[in-house]
Design a binder for these strands. Structure first.
Length: 245
DNA sequence: AATAACATCAACCGCAATGTG
DNA sequence: ACACATTGCGGTTGATGTTAT
């Protein structure tokens, strides 16, 4: 009974990845593509579990990843998508090419959350906070009735970048997390975000659209090249880049 | 200079969803 | 329809770096 553990617990390494392990994993995946993650560690000669390999690849080694902090436009989009999708980080990440769900989740928890609270916005509900009643970090007190939130609803005004604000889309009075808003058939934007078209639209170039993002601000600009140079540092300049789609 | 407190983020864990026979 | 395998997701942890005292 019960499923097998995702990996043999014996002899499976944990903790931070070494450059050598990265190299092995990247070499293998570039040569063979992403196939059965369970088999990857064995085939790549790694003493890791498949899950760990997948995570390392998707969050750190993928060639199409951007590096560095999210720029203003990306941050704004995260806020907007979060107001609609809630903590669906993978969905949110789908709207930010080159960014991972983990990265966005971390950035949300460390930067955006605080920023919103500072601005007097509840990072969970995206409604204005009532400062006297609700201290920061206690966003959803039971004695914070939905009616109050509703009163302030119009004050939520996420700056424009072509996407409507949370307040515009919230037609419900309920204080529960924004799950009810997630009806793609009612919302053209949601419909678009959840569609393949959105994911395939490579014109989402935030570094280009953001005024305040200079190459210095956004070292991820020329990420592919930087990554390739990193690979050269590994001594794996003979990557078969054609294998990656 | 030492160290405590805080911030950041890579990585892990457990569960849910999905695929397959 | 069912059982099991595999993958993906979101919450959480812990190591490391940074700042304050």
């Amino acid at each position: 009974m019960g499923r097998q553990p995702c990996c043999d617990k014996l002899g499976v390494k944990k903790g931070p990845w070494t450059a050598e392990e990265d190299k092995k994993l990247v070499n293998f995946l570039l040569a063979h593509g992403q196939c059965c993650w369970r088999a990857v560690p064995k085939l790549a000669g790694l003493r890791r579990c498949g899950k760990s390999c997948r995570l390392r690849w998707t969050n750190y080694l993928r060639p199409d990843l951007k590096r560095g902090l999210l720029n203003e436009a990306e941050e704004q989009l995260v806020i907007d998508l979060h107001s609609r999708l809630g903590n669906r980080w993978s969905k949110i990440a789908a709207g930010l090419p080159g960014r991972t769900d983990n990265e966005i989740k971390n950035h949300w928890n460390t930067h955006i959350k605080k920023k919103l609270i500072k601005m007097g916005i509840d990072p969970i509900t995206h409604e204005p906070l009532r400062k006297q009643v609700t201290p920061p970090e206690m966003p959803c007190k039971p004695n914070n009735p939905p009616a109050d939130l509703e009163m302030n609803q119009q004050n939520v005004n996420i700056p424009e970048h072509g996407i409507s604000s949370a307040a515009e889309s919230s037609s419900s009075n309920e204080s529960q997390p924004l799950e009810p808003n997630l009806k793609s058939e009612d919302d053209p934007l949601m419909s678009y975000i959840l569609s393949d078209t959105f994911l395939e639209d490579l014109t989402w170039d935030f570094s280009a659209s953001s005024e305040d993002s200079s190459p210095a601000d956004n070292p991820a600009e020329d990420n592919s090249l930087a990554w390739f140079l990193d690979c050269k540092d590994f001594g794996v300049e003979d990557f078969e880049l054609g294998c990656i789609n």
